[in-house]
Amino acid sequence: MAAQTDLRAAPPPPRERPGARGSGRPAGGWRQREDAKGWLFIAPFGAVFIVFLVAPLAYAFYLSLFTKGLATGTKFAGLDNYTRAFTDPAFLKGLWFVVKFSLVLIPVQMAVSLAAALVLDGMTSKFSRFSRLMMFVPYAIPAVIGALMWGFLYSPNFGPAQQLFGFFGLDAPVMLSPDNVFGALMNVVTWQWAGYYMIVIYAALQGIDPSIYEAAKIDGASSWQVALRIKIPMVASALVLILVFAVIGTLQFFTEPQILGRISNGAIPPDFTPNMYAFTTAFAFAQFNYASAISFSLGAVVFIGVYIFLFATRKRGSFL
């Protein structure tokens, strides 16, 4: 893909003709009529977009402006639900957890996948192909199953840790205790996603023209220098893309803590993450107005956070 190499080259070649009309294509009404047909291609997706994104968000916002009490019935409450959410210790605690979790998890995940991609990029053996696949397989496994398997492996009674520690006459650590649950969840998520991220980076690395490495080697650059100064900057847009998805995914953390919560003896309460809290509020307590406010707030926090991030890392040729 040619666009790959545009990353740092000073003037990127125009990817699209600026203003198609009159730039060497047949001009006039025919062209305009033809271009208007673009809407026909977009319309089916546009319909789904309006019904399943715009409408739910609008409706959730509308619902979140009301409160429902047993005695009082449904009544207009303005932004009360939002004031409540952003002063609700359960919501704030969950939000703080996912933010903290992202800050620790994402750098680790990126480091693992980048290191693996760089190592694999330099190899062409059958073994390296096999490792690439093995690392990617967890992506195809549902988060529910991933969490279940690790839940078993974490067990201090019948997991492998028990054997290992028992061999030295020690008790295995309780992975799902309040102290260890952060690391336990981090491991599950890294296991699940690092391979996918690795493949994205790897594919971007494979798109680099190898003659650049030759040139750098001849100039006396070591493999480390090639990796740090050429390879990593050239896959920067892949890294930004991954980072964006990792942030969006982690802030809406739900499945893994939901599954592990049942075997955690209370270390993962039902309000552990904002999404779990919204789910419990809606389906255990039937407070749909307040749950809508929580969902809407979470969506807004994620959206604004990602937007700021993209704005900060924005540069020519990167994602968005």
């Binding site: 399943f52 739910p56 959730a60 802030l251 809406q252 739900f254 749909f288 959206f303 937007y307």
Partner: peptide
């Protein structure tokens, strides 16, 4: 608008969509 939608977390839509 589409790119903005990429940044909307899918799970934040679940409960609103359920209610709808």
């Amino acid at each position: 608008i589409l790119l903005g939608a990429v940044m909307v977390p899918a799970t934040a839509l679940v409960i609103p969509t359920f209610v709808l």
